[in-house]
């Protein structure tokens, strides 16, 4: 696969630790993603992959370690050997450059599809309504749902809702997209349309980090596959290497179960 290295990686996760109470979830995670790369994160449930994803946009606070997007430390500033949490305003600004798609879609049910997509551009980024609407319609066209612009989320199928959620996340023009098991809540026959949308996004050069159980998608679309277990990255590399010739027994036994 192509590895586009041009200096600093777009996302770098360095020695990240995170516990929920006494329960350690991340135990020193290291990971980098270059601009334009798609990285799929695999692993059994409870391995910490979703938590790691949520640390990238500071929806979860890390206990130790660095998360950097485009070289900028997320959620903290470092001073005198300590990490001080940034103000809410600064964190919100960082978040609007990172798109996120959730397992449960989390569309705003009281807003139409179009209102969902223009909400953040208008309210957070202060884009004029006409410009935001035009861009939203363009995005809805790209995910094939322009005809549903005035529908409410609950009138859509799960697959359609997730495609709207992808359009909504793209509306703030992020340079990195996070996907948290985007197809796990979908009926099997609806998975394909969402994966197709994500594949098109990858082809357009979007940098993507995808927590998923879709091995086929990882094999076809990903530039790198990361296998996590028990709060650490067990191995990572091109999909052919990790999926077809895993070096670690833990990866092998996981793949035996899911394939």
């Amino acid at each position: 696969m192509t590895t586009k290295t041009n200096g600093t990686p777009l996302l770098s996760i360095e020695g990240v630790w995170k516990s929920f109470g006494d329960l350690p979830v991340l135990r020193g995670v290291d990971l980098t993603i270059d601009a334009g790369e798609v990285t799929c994160v695999l692993g059994p449930s409870g391995s910490g992959k979703s938590t790691m994803l949520r640390c990238v946009n500071h929806i979860e606070r890390v206990d130790r370690g660095y998360v950097r997007v485009g070289g900028e430390l997320i959620g903290y500033r470092e001073e005198g050997g300590k990490l001080f949490e940034l103000s809410e305003r600064a964190i919100c600004h960082q978040r609007s450059a990172i798109g996120m798609v959730f397992q449960q879609f989390n569309l705003f049910p009281h807003m139409t599809v179009l209102e969902n997509v223009v909400e953040a551009p208008i309210r957070v980024q202060k884009v004029a309504r006409e410009a935001a609407s035009a861009r939203a319609r363009d995005l809805l066209g790209r995910v094939g749902l322009l005809a549903k612009a005035d529908a409410y989320p609950r009138q859509l199928s799960g697959g359609q809702q997730q495609r709207v959620a992808i359009a909504r996340a793209l509306a703030t023009q992020p340079r990195l997209m996070l996907f948290d098991e985007p197809t796990s809540a979908l009926d099997p026959e609806l998975v394909g349309e969402v994966l197709e949308t994500m594949r098109a996004l990858a082809q357009d050069g979007m940098t993507m980090m995808v927590v998923t159980h879709e091995i086929g998608f990882a094999r076809e679309v990903a530039d790198a596959v990361v296998f996590m277990d028990d709060g650490v990255v067990v191995e990572s590399g091109p999909p052919a290497a990790v999926l077809d010739a895993p070096a670690h027994e833990r990866t092998r036994s996981f793949l035996r179960k899911v394939l």
């Binding site: 929806i59 978040r95 996120m100 449960q104 989390n106």
Partner: peptide, 25 residues
Amino acid sequence: RGQHEAAQALGMHRGLALRRIVIPQ
């Protein structure tokens, strides 16, 4: 909770999320 998280992830601050997303629901 997912509604709060979706608003957060879009860069909405707490007051804005409350006003636009949480209270209407």
